[in-house]
Design a protein around this nucleic acid. Structure first.
Lengths: 283, 283
DNA sequence: GCAAATTCAGAAAATTCGTTCCATATTTAT
DNA sequence: ATAAATATGGAACGAATTTTCTGAATTTGC
């Protein structure tokens, strides 16, 4: 006796777009209260995504059970299943990337092309996150600090070394001389004494954070030097000894992270500092 | 009897930014498991916003009760209260995202944010071009050449130096030893003699192409060494002295090019070579 | 205008969720 | 080394949430 009931819902929309289509298709034949749900859902997708049935029902002027029937009318088992679609839409942009990523992953990540495709997708997402999350004020303070400094010192080891090394090169090309602190043994800390109060220290460090780098920055910060740090989390120990912190969430593949987003930010900093210096030097 | 309990938490972060600040402030004094929560929360804010304690706890590798204690440590009554902050961030972010993008784009290329937005857009485009134009066969030959080489030598000057320096680091992390050729004066060419026939030379060079690098690669190529080159055009002089050429069109802003796309490709190569080497070393 | 079918509200049931509690393990201080 | 303090895992509890169910109300077809 239940075979009919089961048979009528083999199909549930799997993304927000088809859900919207389904609603508009069925809304003609919907009774009053379900129509009310439909209009509220389309007008307040965020509240559907985050609220409980009780809250939403009260806001939409219906009973909680009506919401469940609404979801079932659209082909879902219940309200919760429909809610997931709305949640996916809320996360939004990430969705197209994760969708493409799973597609790539299905085609295998063991071929060189697959690995590259994976990194490219993740890098693009990282770049979007960068624009979205970047602390514009911190970025401006960075430019200000670096362009007004008497001398710019650059420090970064391991994975961070290419970043500062690139900054060293690019800033140099723009006529901004910098002091790249290379690591040539345990004498790093001794060189703090050559950094003066009017100088700026740009330090990049990523998890796992090199203790020497943090120690160095700490000493410089203690001497009143402007410390700008580029790191991967506010939990980074470098954050506490910096006047300005720039955060970058870099794309990962297993344990290995690319540097593409970081390089994008670094280049922008270099160009902005170069511009700013040009203005002041022309005055 | 409850006045004390109520009194000790008059303070709960009311927005995502101050929540992040609070986490980073308290993270120093946090025990292991709470630290684990902190890191997971900052890395996966979306999942905190949408998931249930059971789901999140399992994904973060802790107990549900630990999540509650984590929220209470931050000043909230419980997990649910903290979750609302994450939800607010999720909703606000989506509404602001496109708005923010256009604002950045309109702010011109003279503000730091504008420059960054510009680079991000161009980098994303470059990444797209990379997947579309990449010579898969050349990429596979590259992996093959590097993973079967007795020794891998890396060469790149100026803007290309960060690339090879990063490869040196990443491959090293994966257990693949490489020889990074640093430029310490005019003696570069003399070192060709240390490169043997079974070795591979990975050389990166971009316009304007350093004559020393091309000359060096040419001599190595003449000795029968496998030369893989990473460059910005098939017209590059390095192409004629390479067994395999990888081409990357990097994002530009005026005269200055980012390295983000190049770094993405470099990372992929490193991971692929690391994988391949692992297979063969396990045999 | 009447009967059948459908829709609805509200209560009740079943499940899930967040939170608390406590015994055990671990760290810290002495 | 020992004791005190703190942190942790896991079970248990109470609250809240989703879903089902039922009788009443409304609509539909004739």
């Amino acid at each position: 006796m239940t075979q009919n009931l089961d048979a009528i819902k083999p199909d549930a929309p799997s993304d927000y777009e088809s859900l919207k289509t389904r609603i508009s298709t069925l809304s003609d034949s919907m009774p009053k209260r379900l129509m009310q749900c439909a209009r509220y859902a389309l007008a307040n997708p965020d509240r559907i995504a985050l609220g409980t049935t009780a809250e939403i029902a009260s806001a939409a002027g219906v009973q909680p059970s009506t919401l469940v029937r609404f979801a079932q009318t659209l082909g879902f088992d219940g309200f919760s299943q429909m809610q997931q679609i709305f949640q996916g839409q809320l996360v939004g942009r990430n969705n197209e990337y994760t969708e493409r990523l799973t597609k790539i992953r299905e085609s295998g990540t063991n071929t060189p092309g697959g690995i590259l495709g994976n990194f490219v997708e993740r890098s693009k997402q990282s770049l979007d996150d960068l624009v979205r999350q970047v602390d514009t004020a911190a970025l401006e303070r960075t430019i200000e600090a670096l362009s007004s400094a008497e001398n710019i010192h650059l420090l970064g080891l391991r994975r961070a070394y290419p970043v500062v090394s690139y900054l060293h090169y690019t800033l140099g090309k723009m006529g901004v001389r910098t002091n790249l602190l290379e690591y040539t043994g345990g004498i790093l800390e001794e060189r703090v004494q050559f950094i003066n109060e009017g100088d700026a220290l740009f330090v990049a460090t990523f998890s796992p954070y090199s203790p020497e780098v943090v120690e160095f920055a700490s000493k410089a910060f203690g001497r009143g030097v402007a410390v700008v740090s580029l790191t991967d989390s506010v939990l980074s120990p470098i954050a506490r000894v910096s006047s300005t912190v720039l955060e970058v969430n870099e794309a990962e593949h297993g344990a290995f992270r690319s540097l593409s987003t970081t390089m994008c930010l670094a280049t922008s900093i270099a160009v902005a500092v170069g511009d700013a210096r040009k203005w002041t030097s022309l005055s």
